[in-house]
């Protein structure tokens, strides 16, 4: 038998599918997630495109209070001040979603930074950062955010920051555990051996590989931030001059027995939004999980 000198034979051509494209195709095969995405897109359109068509000021008294939905041309009825609930749902949705996104962003920025440094450096730095995280974790979150809002006043900015500050701990823990796992992998040692600096290793090597669970966590964070905002509004701790879903619930709360619909409608909107976000989050989780993807 002859000694074959040729190197590896050229393999059959494979098309260059990027991990991203693979992820998208994986996501698309998850029907629940796609349904969630469709629902989410519908809500976003309703909230952001709707006001362009349905031009009513949500703060303006337009009819008698407590008009039942469908009557007198008010699709979702009017609230205790005779304001159009449909308009409030649209404009208020913008605020709820914006707060949800912004608060999630705040918590991701804090959480990833703390988690990444704790997980990468270990030792004393990890001890300190994780004790710091635990301190925030054991605070009763609603109470703490109420304190922040009460101290600094109820504005959109303080509400957003308050929600972000009380909910970043989960992101930090996820990030840290991913960093602990990934930093021991050989490609990190390879990059180190290629003379990479610490910051390069943290942000260019480890973080991109740690992203999947962080993305999932951040997505769920948006949903919980919306709920949080609603809870604060319900308790009257939000800017009264800004319409949001929580604000609608909060302001109609005293009349819940007379006009339940004024509370139920925004409640249902929040429920649908959080559900849609959770479904998308689940789908992302599956699509980003390489173990499932290999099947």
């Amino acid at each position: 038998m002859s000694d074959t000198m040729q190197p590896a034979q050229p393999e059959p051509e494979i098309q260059s599918t990027s991990p991203l494209r693979e992820m998208v195709s994986m996501f698309m095969r998850n029907y629940a997630a796609v349904a969630g995405l469709v629902l989410l897109i519908a809500i976003v359109l309703f909230v952001f495109v709707g006001p362009l068509i349905h031009r009513t000021d949500p703060f303006e008294m337009v009819w008698a209070p407590f008009t039942f939905p469908g009557q007198e041309g008010f699709l979702l009825g009017t609230d205790y001040l005779g304001r159009d609930i449909l308009a409030a749902m649209m404009v208020g949705g913008q605020v709820s979603m914006a707060i949800g996104l912004a608060a999630a962003l705040v918590s991701v920025i804090i959480g990833v930074t703390v988690g990444a440094f704790a997980g990468y450096y270990g030792g004393v730095i990890e001890e300190l950062l994780m004790r710091f995280t635990e301190f925030f974790q054991v605070l009763p979150t609603l109470l703490f955010s109420m304190v922040i809002v009460a101290l600094f006043g109820a504005s959109l900015l303080t509400v957003t920051l308050a929600i972000g500050v009380v909910s970043w701990t989960a992101v930090a823990r996820v990030t840290r555990s991913e960093f602990l796992r990934i930093r021991e992998l050989e490609y990190v040692a390879a990059a180190r051996s290629g003379s990479a600096r610490d910051l390069y290793l943290i942000f260019k090597v480890i973080l991109p590989n740690a992203l999947p669970p962080i993305v999932v966590q951040a997505n769920l964070m948006v949903g919980s931030a919306i709920l949080f905002e609603a809870a604060l509004s319900f308790l009257g701790l939000s800017d009264p001059n800004v319409m949001s879903w929580g604000q609608v619930i909060g302001s109609n709360r005293p009349y819940i027995l007379d006009a339940g619909f004024a509370v139920a409608i925004p409640g249902f909107a929040i429920f649908l939004t959080v559900l849609a976000i959770s479904l998308v989050g689940d789908g992302l989780n599956d699509a980003l999980n390489p173990k499932l993807r290999q099947r």
């Binding site: 038998m1 000694d3 074959t4 000198m5 040729q6 190197p7 590896a8 034979q9 393999e11 059959p12």
Partner: peptide, 15 residues
Amino acid sequence: ERLMEIPGVVPALTD
């Protein structure tokens, strides 16, 4: 100095 090689790789069972 050289080992005998089996060039290439195992084919995919699907094709």
